[in-house]
Design a protein around this nucleic acid. Structure first.
Lengths: 291, 291
DNA sequence: GCAATTATTATACTTGGGGTATAAAATAAT
DNA sequence: ATTATTTTATACCCCAAGTATAATAATTGC
């Protein structure tokens, strides 16, 4: 993400939160970001697309956070699971996404595009949750994993919405999550309602996604290629070339890449490319999370 | 509701469903209803208000339907409960509200007004459900009634949304409701999370509502007063006068009114006021349901 | 360093929707 | 039949999304 684009995204995000998405005009964004209309439409074809860029960025942050939470912990740790679920809420809160979503859901002309985007997000969240339920409650839960995920997810969201709407904002989201998790504690006696194969297509999506993240990673690297060269750091240039080479190969060595990216990011520390490094790290985390 | 207003509402409803609320312009409504802008703004101060009129009308239909379903059945009948929950979905489906809600949630400038309206609707639904859960599962459930209502309601809505989104439209909503009800079958071992007193203010709302329905009923009756007189039916005129008198008194005799309204409606059968009669019946049902 | 390309600005323009205003015509009420 | 009220047609205002374009600034390639 280049400087101008970031400038726009930051201004837009602030405004979307403060005034709500529909109430924020493009003019507002232009003034806040100190850019002209042409520039805006150079980066985004519509206000909706700008919003989706913001949401995508935040989603990456959530994935990264969840991955960090799981480091060094066993995958069956229930408290980690709760923290990971809470991560979305905390990050949403940090960016005040609650307010944003409240003024969203659909909007002016955004229709299908945004709707599909949000649907994709929540269905991904549910398949992730079903997978994690198997890890936390054991493989014998697999049959009912989607039933449980739906009930738990539904309970969390509705309950937190209720608590918001009736003004009980002091209750931490973790309490709500523990409450909702309790609802799926007992083994299910009935045959599964939501069958795993319903969601197969959405697992396939992951592969598409994987491709997308991969190309995105590649693109980001090539984007800053010249800037990296300018730093005239031999090691860095080598890393850069290595990473691109790996990404272009059919079977990239993920372990090696992980290590190299760490050094790569380190070498960028303090330079004006530091943020790009972080972004690359996040993309990579997302890539391995999806494999 | 007079003829022109109904004409507008019907046209608007069709369009909201077909094109979605935000995508429907007032111009579209004017053309579909064959009216001019002035007329529209004579009945509604905004597009949002028009939508709320439609939603209110449908809500009344739901209440009426649920009341009909409970006739002659014990209040603990689980299948009646399921049918009553399903009523909302069926009526929503009949009016294709799913499509409407999907294009809604918030919108252009509607903001607070519409948001509050929808919040009110769903919180009322939850308090209704909590009450019914006590009736169906027994009084010993009261402590956890709101917990159970939230979990069940959340499960129903999320699950049906999922099934819609993944294209499993052939699964009847009743299956989803039975599935969701199963989730709250076991007695809850933990202390309640959502306490009943959180929802106390929303019970008070009922009283306000009652007043509204009463005045609405009165207004509807006076609206058609002259048309009724024109029919030159002595009995009908007497009923008309009687009902108005009762509504104006401090303690209307509901039993008498119920009987008179039945005859009243009967006398209107076949006339062009038949629909008005039905509407009055629905309003009255709502009135006694809230007392 | 200079030429060529690309990004950015400023500005004007088109389209379209929400909502107001008003005078004339139609309909209803007494 | 004469008021009142509703309805219409039309023109208008305001504002926002998005397009177009010519001029200017910044990058890039060589």
């Amino acid at each position: 993400m280049n400087k101008k684009k970031k400038q726009i995204v930051e201004a837009a995000q602030t405004l979307f939160i403060k005034k709500g998405f529909p109430a924020t005009s493009i003019q507002d964004i232009l003034e806040a970001a100190n850019i002209s209309k042409g520039t805006f439409y150079n980066y985004f074809s519509s206000k909706t697309e700008c919003l989706m860029a913001i949401l995508t960025f935040i989603k990456e942050e959530v994935i990264y956070n969840r991955q960090q939470l799981s480091l060094g912990k066993t995958s069956s740790d229930r408290h980690v699971f709760v923290q990971q679920i809470a991560a979305r809420f905390h990050i949403d809160k940090k960016h005040n996404l609650m307010a944003l979503f409240a003024s969203l859901a659909s909007s002016d002309t955004a229709h299908q595009e945004l709707k599909d985007f949000l649907n994709q997000q929540y269905l991904e969240e549910i398949t992730w949750m079903a997978e994690r339920i198997c890890e936390v409650f054991g493989e014998e839960r697999r049959q009912h994993a989607y039933d449980n995920a739906a009930v738990c997810f539904g309970a969390i969201h509705l309950t937190s919405k209720i608590l918001m709407d009736i003004g009980k904002t002091e209750i931490p989201i973790e309490d709500t999550i523990y409450f909702s998790l309790r609802q799926i504690e007992q083994m299910n006696a009935h045959p599964p309602f939501l069958k795993a194969d319903y969601f197969l297509p959405y697992h396939h999506e992951k592969n598409y996604k994987e491709k997308d993240v991969k190309t995105l990673l590649h693109q980001t690297l090539t984007d800053i290629d010249s800037s990296v060269k300018k730093l005239q750091n031999e090691k860095l240039s080598y890393y850069q070339a290595f990473l691109l080479e790996q990404l272009e190969s059919n079977e990239p060595n993920l372990f090696l890449m992980e290590s190299v990216i760490a050094s790569y990011q380190n070498a960028l520390h303090g330079t004006k490319l530091e943020d790009k490094g972080k972004y690359i790290q996040i993309l990579f985390t997302q890539l391995i999370a999806e494999v």
